[in-house]
Design a protein around this nucleic acid. Sequence first.
DNA 1: ATATTTATGGAGTAATTACTCCATAAATAG
DNA 2: CTATTTATGGAGTAATTACTCCATAAATAT
Lengths: 218, 218
Amino acid sequence: MLTATKGITMVMKGEGQAPRARGRPRLFDRTAALDRAMRVFWDRGYEGATFDELIAVMGLNPSSFYNAFGSKEALYREAVGAYLTGPGGFFLKALAGAGSTQDAFARLMMATAAAYTDDVSPAGCMISLAGLHDAPDRADLRDFMREVRERSRTLMIERLNEGVRNGDLSEKIDVAQIAEFFETVSRGMAVRARDGADRETLEKIGVMALQAWPGVRA
Amino acid sequence: MLTATKGITMVMKGEGQAPRARGRPRLFDRTAALDRAMRVFWDRGYEGATFDELIAVMGLNPSSFYNAFGSKEALYREAVGAYLTGPGGFFLKALAGAGSTQDAFARLMMATAAAYTDDVSPAGCMISLAGLHDAPDRADLRDFMREVRERSRTLMIERLNEGVRNGDLSEKIDVAQIAEFFETVSRGMAVRARDGADRETLEKIGVMALQAWPGVRA
DNA sequence: ATATTTATGGAGTAATTACTCCATAAATAG
DNA sequence: CTATTTATGGAGTAATTACTCCATAAATAT
C-alpha cells in the first residue's frame, strides 16, 4: 500500500498536478465549489452575489473559503476563467470548426443563441453583462471584464484574417468592423436573453445578422 | 398686490401646476436635482449609485431628499422617466421623423451611435444596461427595466407596422423579428459604448446592421 | 509516536448601506 | 401678528457587507 501511494503521488507530480501537500488535505472539491460560485456570479453579477450566498452554495465556511480562494474578487476572476473554459467554450469551438469563415460565424450565432438560453444555466452571458454598471471603486474589475470582452473580439478578428488568407473574404473588407458588428450582436443577444428571449428568437436574430455579411444577397 | 397674487395662483391652477403650498417652499430646483441624480444612475446603475453620492450631487441632506423623493428606488424610477424624456428622447424622434421606414431605422442607428457616445454624458444607455445583473431582492426593479426595454421594442414594431401600411414593407415580412434585431443591435451598442467604442465605430455597426434590412442588396 | 502543517467551525468586527428622528428655521394664510 | 405648515441640518441607527481570528481537528513526514 505504501508503494502504491508513492506511485500515485509520483504520477500526480508527473501529470503536472500539485504534489500532495504536507498538512491536512482539503475536504471539499475545489473545482466543483468554483463551478457553483461561477454560476452564482453568472446569475447575479459580482456585486449581486453576496459572500454568504457564495460560501453557502460552495458548502464552505468563511475560513475555508479564504484559505482556498483568497477573496471574493480573486474568486470572481477564477470564476471568469471557469466560465470561459466551461459554458463559454462554445465560442472558440464554433469559430474553430470546419467550413468557410461565413460558416464559422453562422455556427457562432447559432451556438450563442443556444448557450444563452440553456435552461439549466443562468440566461445570457457571464462576460457580456458584467462590469458595465458599477461603482467607481470597482474600476479594476471593470477593466478586467473589458479585457475579456476585447479578447473575444480579437479571436473573431483572427478568424476573419484567416478567411482573408484562405480567400473566403476579400482583402478589401474591414475585418475589424465585421468583428465589431458580430460582437455587438452577441452582447445584445445576452441582454435579450436576460429579458427572457428564447432560443428561437435569438436564432432568428443571428440569421438576420448574417444577412449583413459582406456579399450576402449581393 | 393681493388681487395680483390671487390671479397668479389661479393661472397656475389653470395651467395644471400645483397650487402654491402652504408651508415653506423648497429651496432647491427639484427638476435639476432629479436630472443630476439621473446621470449618476446612468453612470453607475442602481446599486452602484450610493445614497451619499446621490444626495451630494443633488445638493440635499437626507431629510430634504426623503421629503421630496421618498426613497432611493422611487428616485430611480423617476430618473428613468427623466432619461426617457431627456437624453433618451432621440429614440422617439428618430422613429417619428420624415421619410420611409428604412430611413427611420437608419436615422435611429445614427442617433443611437451619437447618443451613446455623447462626451458630456455617461457612455451607453441608462435603459439597456440596467437591472440585468442584480440580487434577487431587486426583482421589482429588474421587471421595471424589462418593461421599459419592451416598450422600446413595441415602438419599433408600431413604426414597422406603419411601414407595412404605407407600402414601405411587404406584408409578408416579420415585423417583430426586425424589431428584435434592431433592439438587439442597440443593446449591444450600449455595451460597446461602455467599453469605450467611439461614435464612428458605432455608426459603422449601425450601417452594417442596416444591410440586414429586408430587400437591401437583394 | 510525535512534531508539523494545514483545514475547519463559528463567533466576532470594521465599514458601509439606506434610512430616520428631532429640534429649528422659514414661509404662508388669515 | 399668530398659527400652521413645511423645509432643513445633522446626528444617529439597524441591517448588511466582506472579511478575521482563534481554538480545535486531522492529516502528513520522519
